[in-house]
Design a protein around this nucleic acid. Sequence first.
DNA 1: TTTT
DNA 2: TTTT
Lengths: 163, 163, 163, 163
Amino acid sequence: MSVNKVILVGNLGKDPELRYTPSGAAVATFSLATSERYKDREGQQQEKTEWHNIVAWRQLAEICGKYLHKGKQVYIEGKIQTRSYDDKDGNKRYITEIVADQMQMLGGRGDEGGGQREGGYAPRGGNRQESRPAQQAQRSTPATPAYEDFADPPFNPDDDIPF
Amino acid sequence: MSVNKVILVGNLGKDPELRYTPSGAAVATFSLATSERYKDREGQQQEKTEWHNIVAWRQLAEICGKYLHKGKQVYIEGKIQTRSYDDKDGNKRYITEIVADQMQMLGGRGDEGGGQREGGYAPRGGNRQESRPAQQAQRSTPATPAYEDFADPPFNPDDDIPF
Amino acid sequence: MSVNKVILVGNLGKDPELRYTPSGAAVATFSLATSERYKDREGQQQEKTEWHNIVAWRQLAEICGKYLHKGKQVYIEGKIQTRSYDDKDGNKRYITEIVADQMQMLGGRGDEGGGQREGGYAPRGGNRQESRPAQQAQRSTPATPAYEDFADPPFNPDDDIPF
Amino acid sequence: MSVNKVILVGNLGKDPELRYTPSGAAVATFSLATSERYKDREGQQQEKTEWHNIVAWRQLAEICGKYLHKGKQVYIEGKIQTRSYDDKDGNKRYITEIVADQMQMLGGRGDEGGGQREGGYAPRGGNRQESRPAQQAQRSTPATPAYEDFADPPFNPDDDIPF
DNA sequence: TTTT
DNA sequence: TTTT
């Protein structure tokens, strides 16, 4: 019953740090700058930069560690998460991070890209029919497209297409 | 290198239609209304309604078919897709649809809910260590949280947590 | 060259607090809960709640103060912002907030609503021609719609429509 | 009570077309490509391109007409809108467009940028107090930041700041 | 019609 | 700490 979604386009302040948990899961962290321009009361153009702590896990972490670098412009989609930890004086501290579930490299040539999703999903589908029913080819074309016309299951257009 | 994302909150115009492809994949379709209020030049409050064609596949289709109904308020996240088809006169026609990959029921109690994603993802992880290393419990609390402090891999907080 | 966008659907943890700056600007603050369900390693359904600090300014603050209350479900669109302040021991602390620029009440009847934007924008347009050229009514209908067919300038459909 | 939001990152297929309505409002139109990669059933990498019809009005239209060009990578935020028109045979046709309300140029150097919003908003604020109350400078630093600590009204940090 |  |  709720939505927690963040969309950022910004530049990395440093190269990502890639680490591994004891059980072997990759985790990449980096900071991302977004900036906003505004005019102050003297009418001067000013700029204000916001720094975001980005965390990526598993396959997406590996890709971030491999392809991102300081200054790179990226699109990040994820969720907001606040963790608590105890600082050196034993006080509870909070840190807010963006847990990425999608990353897109933007802009530069020399930047090989492709959208990347978190998680390394298993392939869909499986035992699908190779043969297409003959009558499908003969179906008439009604004014309203029937369900057979849905040409595109998400993420795997070749899978399970009914015509 | 691109992003195609739609976020809608609106109400169903009718009950969803749930169908199956020849190979057995579920597909649900429904129309969703969003409305915008504005003042016309006479200063009268006006309302303009936009109708969106929503398509959901597989597990998400099943959930839509089972739980959604006319009038229900939902959050939809997905992508824009334009399909072509031939109308009864043989002319090429285009229809733009929103292929949903997330749906959230909103509003009413009596609406059991929970976020729903397209696809029925397999569980992550697998062979994870059950035992937690003893030294983890003794670690000091540095000013900067270490990677062991990342408490929350996305979607499966219990999996692969390093402390 | 950057984007900083947050979209939340959640419920208020308390009634909003509405205050005014010395110069008279309204500011509303409230916390918003979003929750995520997941299965732990014992296969038990678990829920994790994230609390977001929301800040709204000016007209949007007034609306939040007037219409929102504890438990209300809302859609919030805004940006992430981290402020620093000095705590009682003189240490620099950081707090991350969502500065709202749109709010939508969701769900309940008895909730009069309508999308609300930050800022109290001035009306658009101004000296527009009341008379519509006669030939507009006679224009033919080409296969490709001309610019005159754009029926809908955003947010104010009656303003500046060319036909 | 509804949300209709689109976020796109893609490349222009052609230079934008900039036109003016009879009453003088600028309107820019262009098509934007987003592409998705997927593996077909032979395991071959495939690409599917989606073309979006973008419409921008007024000040944003002028900026698009001036700075965008074929191939340029942009971020677009807007809403989905379907218009109807009559084709040359007198049949009602529908076209779905994205009415942009924000545009960001991405990527290229040689691309002067800055976020652009639809509408040419009037400046906020106005007669604000120049002098800051003396006691503000002396306030103590409580554990919980008070409202006076809100350092940043959106879009105009210098306006109406209470300390 | 773009881009990788 | 980035970028324009």
